[in-house]
Design a protein around this nucleic acid. Sequence first.
RNA 1: GGGCGCGUAGCUCAGCGGCGAGAGCAACCGCCUUACACGCGGUAGGUCCCCGGUUCGAAUCCGGGCGCGCCCACCA
Length: 874
Amino acid sequence: DSACSRTRHPLLHAEGAGAGQPVSWSELHARGYPQRFLPSGPGTDDEDRAFVTVATTRPETYLGDTAVAVHPDDPRATALDGMAVELPLVGRTIPIIRDDYVVMPDFITGEDSGDAKAQMATGFLKVTPAHDPNDWEIGQRHFDTIKAKCSAGEVVINVMAPDASISPDHGWSDYEANGGAHSGAHVYVGLSREDARKKVVKEFEARDLLEAVKPHRHSVGHSYRSHVAIEPYLSDQWYVAVSDDRLVGFAQRALTADQRTTAEHRPQSADDAGDGSLRFYPDRYAKTYETWHDNLRDWCISRQLWWGHRIPVWHKRCQLTEENWHDQLVATGLDHVIQKANGPVAAWTDGAEGMAIAIVRTSDGKTHDLQKDSLQPVTSDTAAEYDIYVCTLGENDLEKHGFAQDPDVLDTWFSSALWPLNTMGWPEPEQSDQTAALLDVFNPTNVLCTAREIITLWVSRMVMFNRYFLSTDGGTTPGHVPFTDVFIHAMIQDGEGRKMSKSLGNGVDPLDIIHSHGTDAMRFTLCKMTTQTQDVRMPVEHDPATKRNTSPKFDEGRNFCTKLWNATRFALMNLEGAESRSTETVIFSDLTLTDRWMLSRLTRAVSAIDGAIGQYQFSVYAQTIYDLLWRDFCDWYLEAIKPTVKTAPGQQAVLRNTLDAILRLLHPICPFITETLGEAVAGVQTGDIQALDLGGPRDPATPLCVAAWPLAGKELLNDGAETTFERVQALVEAIRQARTSSSIPGRESLTLHAPQEILALADEAGGVVQTLAGLGEVRILDGEIEGPTLEVRFEGTSLLLSGFEQRVDDEALRGQLSDQIAKLEKDAGVLDKRLNNPGYVDKAPAHMVQETRDQRAAKQAEIDELRSRLEALA
RNA sequence: GGGCGCGUAGCUCAGCGGCGAGAGCAACCGCCUUACACGCGGUAGGUCCCCGGUUCGAAUCCGGGCGCGCCCACCA
C-alpha cells in the first residue's frame, strides 16, 4: 500500500544488531576536537587565511562532510555567504550554508545560557548527511545548494562499510580524486572508525589545523544487545507512513473528547464509527497517547532478526529497456495485476490477487507511475537499472522468475498491531467455521488492560491498524476502534523502588507465591495493590528454606482467605444446626436492628463495588469487600447473632443471603475459594429476603462463575438502622474499653446500670449489647448498687458497671479522669479557635457552623461533668 | 532531553478542600472465649518533605524548592 515505502535513511546501527534496534544511552567522557577548515573563494588568498572551526567528537566523519552550516542570525554568516571551504586531505570543496539547527555559541550571543552545548559550540557545524540523522535532515533541506556546490557533486557521501570501517564502496566517489597538496583520502580506507579517528586527528595536527582537544561529556547510544557504540548508517528499510492522516489522524480522533487537551484533535464528527470512543483509565494516560501522536514520525518496520513475520515483499533488480519492459513483467505473471491497477499500487482487499508493485529507477530513486502508464515506458531513457518490488498475499512463484524475498522481518509491534484483527480471522473471517463471525463479536472488545510503556508501542498501533484496515471505503472513512477502554495498571517494584528484573533477582514468581500463599490470596493482594498510582512497591524476601523469593505483602490476602473460610464454616454450622427452619420470604420490617443494619451495609458495599469496578479502581473494590466481610460481617454481625440465629428463621435467611452475596461479589478476585464455599452455601435452604436481589437464584449445581451479580436495590439502604447500630457499636466499645482499663476479664458477666434512653437503645438492639460487651443484665440506673462499680462515659452521660470482684483504685480513676478532661479541653480549644474566627462564622455553611457550636457545647458539658466527678472523688 | 508518578504512623499504602488524619503489617497490654492465634479485645505511635500563596478553612488547590522513582528518546 502507499502507506508503506522503502526509504533510505540514516538509522542507528550497530554491526551484529542491525538497524532500528533498541538503544541504551550512557554518558561517556569523550574528547571534543575543534578542527579548522579553510574557506576558499574570493579574497581568501592572503597568507593569514581565515578559517572556520567546527567541533566534533567523531573527527573521522569529516571524510563524508558535504557542507558547513552556520546559524542565519550569526553575525559571521553574512561575510561567509556564498563561500565554501576545502576539506583538508580530502580536498573536497563544500559550501557554507545557513541553517537554524546550528547552536549559537555563548561567545557570539554574549549570554550565559548554562547550556553545555552552547558553551562548547563554535557556531559552525560540519554537515555529514550519511552519518548523522540531524545532518541528514539538513542535507535534505539544502539539497540543491549542496548538490551544486559540493565538489563531489553529491549531498550524501557514505564513507563507511556496515562494520563501520572506512570504505569507498558504499557511495563515496571522490576518495582518491585529489593529489598534490592533498594526499587523498584513500589513506583511511580499511581503517576501523577508531583508528581512522586517530589518524584524522594526527593529520589535522600535522597541518596545524587542530585547535584543541577538549574533554566533553555526552550521551552515546549503545546497542542493547551487543553493547557496542552505535553508528548512524545509511540503509534501506521499509517504513509505514504512520504520519498519514489515515493512521495518525484516525488514532488521534479515536480519543474521547473530554480526554483531549487540544481542540484541534477533538473528534470531528460523532458519526464516524469509533471517533471519540476510546477512553483511558486513569485519565492522565490519555495525554501520553495524545502527545505521542502529536510528534509521530514514520515508522521503520524492517528488523534484521531471525524470528518474526517475513516481510512479504519480493525484489528483483534488472535492466529494463523499451523493448524488454513489458516482457519482464508479463513473464512473472504480473501484467494482469498491473492492468487492473488503479493507482501506483493495488489494494490488499482484492483477495488472493491483492498485490502491490513498485518499479523504482535506481539512478534517482524515482518510482514509475503505474497510473500514468501501466506497462510502457514513457521515454526512451527507461533503458536503465530498475528495482521491482512486489508485495503480495499468499502463494506466488516469483522466486522462479529471479525475485528474492526481503530478508528482513516485521517489527514485532507491526505484527502485534494486527492482533485484534488476525486473531479474529481477518482478513478473511469466513474462510473457516472457527473464525466466522469472530471479528464481529470480539472486535471491538471492551477493555484492554496493559502497562504504561505499551501505550505507544502497541495500543496506538492497534488503534491505527484497526481503524485503517476496517475502513469500508479504502481509508476514507475510518473503521471502529479495537477496544473502547484502556486500563493502565500500576507497576510493581521491589522494596527499594527498583523495577523487578531477572538479572537483579529481585522479582517474585507468581507460581512461588501460589505455592507459599495460595492463588486467591495472591490475586486478592495484587488487586488491593492496584491503586491509581503509577508504581507500587513490594518488599521481596528470600526464603532460604524453599530457595524462592516471596513477599510478606501476600500475608494479608492469605489471612483474608482464611477468615472467609472460617466465617463460612461457622455460618454453615449454625444454619445446618438450626432448630427452626423456614423457606418463607422474609419481610424486611420484621427483622431485628442487627439484620437490617447488615443488609444496609451489604447494599452500600454492592453500590461502592459497582462504582469502583466501573472506574477500574480495583483497590477500592478489594478494600470494600475486605471491610464488608471482616469488619461488618465477622466482627459485628456474626458475633451479634450467635445467641439468636439458631432459633430465628428470618436471621438465618439474612445470614445465608448475605454470605451468598459476599461470595458472589468476591468471586472475580478469589474464584477458587468462593467457588468451593459457594457450593456449600447454595445447598442451604432458607427463605428469600424481601427486596434483596441477588440477581438470580442459585442451586448447588450452578457454579458461582456463572451466577448473577447482586443488585444494589435502594430499598435495603437504611440510614436509621445504620445510625442506631453505630450507637450500639460505640456503647459496646465504651464498655470494652472500661473493662480493659480496669483489667476485668471478658469472662465475667457484668451488670450495666444506665439511664432510660440508653436502656431504650439496648432494648432496640435486642440483646446485642449484652452479647458483645459481655453483660448479664442491663437495668435502670437508680438507688444503691451492691459492690464495686465502674463508670462508663457514653454520649455525655455516666453508666455504671457492677458485678465484679476487684475494687477499682480511686487513684487510677482520678488519673483517667484528668487525662480525659485534658483531652476534652484540647478539643474544645480547637473548636473555640474556629468559632472565634469571624470569617468562619460568616462565610462557612450555616449547618457546619451550627454543628461546630453543638460540638463545642457537648464538649463543655462533658468537661463540667467530669470535673464534678473528680471533685467528688477528691 | 521530554513526559509522568511519588514523598502521610517504624514499614507498605489509602485519603486529595471541612467528620478528632485511616488500613494492613510491625510494636505494646490482655486473652488458646467450642468459626478463625493466618485469630479476638484493647493501647501507643503522625511539624501529612520544606517555603510561600489562594481560602473562613489546606495533607488535600496554586507557585517555588529539596529528595526518590518510572517511562520514552534520531521527534515530543
